[in-house]
Design a binder for these strands. Structure first.
Lengths: 192, 192, 192, 192
DNA sequence: TTCTAATCGAGACGGTACGTCAAGTCTTGCC
DNA sequence: GGCAAGACTTGACGTACCGTCTCGATTAGAA
């Protein structure tokens, strides 16, 4: 009936659930992750999980989100290519780590769970995308990048190939930063 | 013990299974697709399904593969941008159709099923990728595109943003062809 | 640890619990009665219930006990058959009423709860049995009934068929008083 | 949808379920009997239980029914009192045995499950009642018992006190046969 | 033409996990 | 300290599917 009161939430259980979820997803594989196993591993009742999350994907999303780290500003050394390259390298490293294993599962589950998909966009993709666009915006203002391409599109040109490799497994994600140069070639102003 | 003999296979059952799978995946959603429901809908015993496919993802893969149509050659009008744009438009249309609904589910399942992932690459992604690379190769030879970028990478630059939109749902896939021009800008030779 | 102090008990909560229990048991059926529902309906915390009663059967027992009415003396008109018949009719009416619905549930629960069973005997069956035996005793003294049969047994001969119908549902409990005459035939002295 | 086909039933599982149910009910107590425990003990899936029985009460009923033994004819030595006494003794023994423990639980559950109650009457109470009435009928015909009392009522006079002791626990069921004489006193013809 | 062998529809089976319900305990803050 | 409120662990519920396993009943060459 009434939604639970977040202030009365037990922080220990909360922590244990997120931690157990992450560890189990990594060790057993996301596909074999079950709410029951999470509850057992966290020493928690299943109801406590269902009280706060609608699906295991939602838990996993929370678990990886807090592990993806602080959204400090994008690096801004003035050199847009170097900045994008270092950022892309960081993201590629993330996707290749344990976090990537779980993230992959979350994205998979989101394919048939529109609500989860929206949460992924809001919590993970959106904010990081925003930071990237901000940096790109500055490069446009500085006359380094073309002003006639929406930064929204630029972000997709940059990250698209990364996710392509990540989700289709055609190539090693870690090598994706190599592609940055090719993309930038099309985004630069002629005199930069 | 012994693998089944394909010659003794009942073609009617085969057809019914693929058709029912596709229809159910579209109507109920891939996530709610079950082998049991396929068997019932196809008027087929469950064993008959398990005799020929290892998982529902494998069935769905077969079902969409035959619906994706003939792999004729890439269009080659001599105008590389027009060719890529028309090809990308075709792919975007595909991903936005019923086939896309099922394909999305197959990719999701492939995230935790390496065997299925390999099949997706071999049956769907690879062949289409190959055709694209062939066309790109010709454009390179014709001096329209830079020769110092592997066509393998070019394909990812082109299709990456498409799959990004398809799987993350940030933007309408149908609008993806707009991005082709931006990518090509970086791939062209200076004098083209 | 320490048992609660009955003097500090909130009479309003006490009343609300007993009333809600009875009403819920009647309306939803004893089998679907839950402590949680009682607490909610009574506007009371669950702990308040558990502080004063060990099980829902115990609450229900209290609830029906106070509704079964004052244990005034058995009627004693001098006509033992008429007295037993009127008494039996009263009991049959009780068992056929809402009270019977709850009583049935309490007896059921008592089958696997010896403590509750003892309470049922002490609070409900015993006292009424005692009154009946007192009346029978007077009839024995008056020479109307045989003196060689324990009144304890007589009570069971009289009430047994009633409970038989009540708990096994073979016949309408309301018709049970008809049986009194048959039983008495065997209990009378020859010259009565 | 469609009810399962009894011919395809696995007899080994059937047996194991009934046996495990009986043993668990006796060892743990009927109140602590769970479908899950039965399934585990019988080495059977829960679904297999739910496929064939609607509730644990129904399983337990089957289990005790087959253990209550052959419904051979009532003894008929010509001496109605001896016959009833021996029969009552047998029933009292039954109720005092392990079977009684389970039967008690079934009757309890039947109090809030009309369908089960009907099954108890049909499978247990009814047939035994019928045999008793047949014997009583013969005694009536032989002029030993009064013809103006329905045998249906006689049965309740005889068994009522037994069930009263059994379900209310006021006295030892084993001593119930003592009561037969008192009841018969009222049922006999004057010249018998 | 009968025999033999494999596939087929059907569906029961032992399991695993689901998401829900309620039990009884514990904690917090008000009266 | 009792109380209302409600989150907690525990454990069972009844359901849905999984993938395996009999069953007869076709069906198809091989004898």
């Amino acid at each position: 009936m009434t939604p639970p009161n977040p202030e009365l939430r037990n922080p220990r259980s909360h922590r244990a659930i997120l931690d157990s979820t992450f560890e189990l997803a990594v060790s057993k594989g996301y596909g074999k992750l079950t709410v029951e196993a999470i509850a057992t591993a966290a020493g928690v009742g299943k109801q406590t999980i269902y009280r706060w999350w609608p699906s295991k994907g939602a838990i996993a999303l929370d678990a990886i989100n807090e592990r993806m780290g602080h959204l400090t500003d994008f690096p801004d050394t003035g050199d847009i290519e170097a900045d994008l390259r270092s950022q892309t390298t960081a993201l590629a490293g993330l996707l290749s780590s344990d976090i990537g294993i779980v993230y992959r599962g979350v994205i998979a589950e989101a394919q048939s769970d529109p609500h989860l998909a929206a949460n992924v966009r809001d919590a993970i993709v959106g904010p990081r995308s925003k930071l990237c666009r901000d940096r790109l915006e500055r490069a446009v203002t500085a006359g380094q990048l073309r002003g006639d391409i929406p930064t929204r599109a630029m972000v997709q040109l940059l990250y698209g190939p990364l996710y392509y490799r990540f989700l289709l497994g055609t190539d090693d994600v870690q090598d994706a930063p190599e592609l940055v140069g090719y993309i930038l070639a099309g985004l630069r102003t002629h005199d930069s």
